[in-house]
């Protein structure tokens, strides 16, 4: 029980201190809006294109919403030494890092529903398979957050975390099948696409929203789950190796 009091209060503090600030809220709303509008205008094919654009916009909203925040909640706190206070608390490191990342995961899930709510007014979403959609959104949020954590732990400055994040994020827009099918990519890029977690999340979202997907949904979700575990374990290993050296 004591551990969960600590867990809940770390999450609550991060939400209040970092996530529920006007810049983050506006970023969370404006960014998906801008992406939706951009692809909608670019496609020029009318409202019927929304269902094909929506999965990519959702995935992007989650990716950018989550990865940006870990640079603050982890790298910044490590830099100003307030993270030491958390490391001195009698809670396991695994639970501490889950507490530090849960806020970003929640933020990512909320971000995902911004384009969904907008699309509800513009298109018919009655055929969306919500049973596949919901776990995909959650697992994309978890995988993106843990990718952000992995980066945040690997660097020592906030600006390095942001730069390093972009190194992963921007290629993902084009490589993970968000807006362009992976099958249309040049052969040498396909292995890279399948090495990125967002590819599997986007595949499930495409399947859930308009029925077209490459891999079985269960396989996509399992691989995404493996990415989550792998990234979290790698981050913990780095913390133990670099921060408690």
């Amino acid at each position: 029980m004591k551990r969960w009091i600590a867990f809940w209060n770390i999450l609550l503090k991060d939400m209040r201190t970092y996530y529920l600030k006007p810049p983050n809220i506006s970023w969370g709303l404006i960014f998906p809006l801008a992406w939706t509008a951009m692809f909608f205008i670019k496609s020029g094919s009318g409202l019927e294109s929304i269902s094909s654009i929506l999965p990519g916009v959702i995935a992007l909203s989650i990716l950018f919403g989550t990865t940006s925040l870990l640079a603050v909640t982890v790298t910044f706190e490590k830099k100003n030494r307030s993270f030491e206070r958390l490391m001195l608390a009698p809670i396991p490191l695994e639970l501490l890092m889950l507490a530090k990342t849960s806020g970003a995961i929640l933020f990512g899930v909320v971000n995902a529903f911004v384009p969904v709510i907008m699309a509800l007014f513009l298109a018919d979403l009655s055929r969306v398979a919500w049973g596949a959609f919901a776990p995909a959104v959650f697992l994309i949020a978890v995988a993106s957050t843990f990718l952000g954590l992995f980066i945040a732990v690997a660097v020592s400055e906030v600006f390095e975390a942001q730069t390093f994040s972009n190194f992963f994020r921007f290629p993902m827009i084009f490589l993970c099948g968000l807006f362009f099918p992976i099958n249309n990519l040049p052969a040498f890029l396909k292995p890279i696409a399948y090495a990125l977690p967002l590819t599997y999340g986007a595949d499930v979202l495409h399947g859930a929203v308009h029925g077209e997907h490459t891999l079985p949904i269960a396989v996509d979700l399992s691989i995404l789950g493996i990415f989550c575990i792998g990234l979290f374990a790698a981050s913990l290993r780095n913390i133990k190796r670099k921060w408690i050296s």
Binding site: M1, K2, R3, I5, A6, W8, N9, I10, K13, T17, N80, R81, S82, E84, R85, L86, L88, A89, P90, I91
Partner: peptide, 30 residues
């Protein structure tokens, strides 16, 4: 154990009272 580091490392954006309450919560105090 309790630790007072050589540099104050509390949270600048929290009030003094909130900082103490947060630190207490880290030790599972209700």
């Amino acid at each position: 154990i309790g630790v007072v580091p050589d540099e104050s490392n509390l949270y600048p954006e929290l009030t003094g009272f909130e900082n103490l309450c947060f630190c207490a919560a880290l030790y599972g105090m209700r």
